[in-house]
Design a protein around this nucleic acid. Structure first.
Lengths: 249, 249
DNA sequence: CTTGAAAGTGACGTTACGTCATTTTGTATA
DNA sequence: TATACAAAATGACGTAACGTCACTTTCAAG
């Protein structure tokens, strides 16, 4: 049994934090002295480490509490959701960064910067925002959602899906080399193999998938890994080459 | 002069927000009716737009207030500071993302995840980087270290790493079918291709890597992601078969 | 038994509003 | 003009994860 002071020494966590964790029933002391001083054991230290670790992943204390309390918590989904959340936040920051850089660049060109200048710049940037917003809102449709819901849990991180994504991303890297490059054709061959292995007896499903893939909006709705049009066309062309080569052989 | 309702209609900003801005003296109404209802003019609308815009850059309301109040505010420095701040935040999120990806990748390999598993993973991640660096330095020379950097690091979401993990995980699924099963051999062939693509003409390096991989202790010291022994042996055997088949062909 | 350090318990502050509950004002209609 | 109903106002509490007083009690050494 160690005192609260020992905890702060060993972990760097403040006394206040320990008391707070006790207060919200996230981590209670193993025991207390007669006078009410908190005493912690080895188990608590370990739990504290876990809490700290999960905090570095950006989870809220409430979420951490739920995770550690639920004996059969779905860690995979939990982490995936968190990853998605983090990615969204990163995207937001990315936009901020982009606008800030734009402003700073323009300010280098304009020599004098005051409120009036800024107002002009704001006008420009706000226009873009409104356009984007309008564009996105226009793309909503009820019927399309049903189709997407019928798809299996393709974004659930199973190895097959993962490889698909990995292969696509690799193709993107090799795009400059052209559809006939050996690396490209090897990847395409692997894709073909996987298509047969996984979806062999259900070609309609593949068609459906491909249709959604070809629509960026639908892909995004479905939570697919975003693939740009250029890449999709590249894949289609490379597949044609691949099939021709196979026929000749 | 327009009412608060008009403001919400035109800008989408809530009544509560307008009252709050009034309360903190960020944006006060131009006038009030006898009964105390807020009335805004064109100037206020513009200021409100500015506020909204600066908010999208991540500034706090207090900061925005200071900026708009100070007649000769140093916009350039202000924006630059904000950019730095944003970049730091992005970096933090990037680390979270990296760790999350690492965990998720490992979870694709392990099928069951519970608190005990997580504790093990936490142990690995909490290990300090210095130990790893030191260990790796002593094992590999300079040139090899360059290659080592290309080694699939489980934290990086790059396509090559993803495919490695996906292939490993798929192998695990197919283990029961034996080392000669066509699915297995196709995966092995793909692994071989990738090995050659990435590490090309340096087979000794691959041997050394493989040696570390086969020793759980060494792997852990090097900070590699954990792969169970059974799977590693399976891969080795399957590779032997693969190479024999190739010789015969 | 004293004494100073360490620990305890409230309580308030932080951000940018959301969400009641209650009261007052504005306005359209009978 | 009285009334009804919408809209606006005010005030208060809640949010997350503690930091920071202020004040009291307990612990351990001398």
């Amino acid at each position: 049994m160690i005192s609260i002071k020992e905890i702060t020494k060993q972990t760097g966590i403040t006394v206040r934090t320990m008391r707070y964790y006790d207060q919200i029933n996230l981590l209670s002391p193993a025991d207390k002295t007669e006078g009410g001083h908190r005493l912690y054991g080895e188990k608590e230290l370990i739990k504290l480490q876990e809490i700290q670790f999960l905090k570095t992943l950006g989870f809220s204390l409430q979420a951490i509490k739920d995770m550690l309390e639920n004996e059969n918590h779905d860690w995979f989904s939990g982490l995936q959701n968190q990853l998605n959340y983090i990615l969204k936040e990163k995207e937001k920051l990315g936009e901020m960064e982009s606008i800030l850089r734009g402003l700073l660049h323009e300010m280098v060109l304009e020599e004098q910067i005051d409120l009036l200048q800024l107002q002009k710049l704001i006008q420009i940037y706000q226009k873009d925002f409104h356009k984007r917003e309008a564009y996105l809102k226009q793309m909503f449709d009820q019927e399309e959602r049903k189709l997407l819901d019928m798809l299996p849990n393709i974004n659930h991180g199973d190895p097959d899906t993962m490889e698909w994504i990995a292969l696509m991303a690799q193709l993107k890297q090799h795009m400059l080399k052209g559809v006939s490059a050996p690396e490209v054709q090897r990847i395409i061959r692997r894709m073909d193999e996987k298509t047969v292995e996984v979806y062999g007896d259900c070609p309609e499903f593949i068609d459906k998938l491909w249709e959604i893939r070809k629509s960026p909006e639908k892909s995004q709705e479905a939570g697919f890994y975003p693939v740009d049009q250029e890449l999709l066309e590249f894949v289609e062309k490379a597949f044609v080459i691949f099939q021709n080569n196979r026929k000749e052989a």
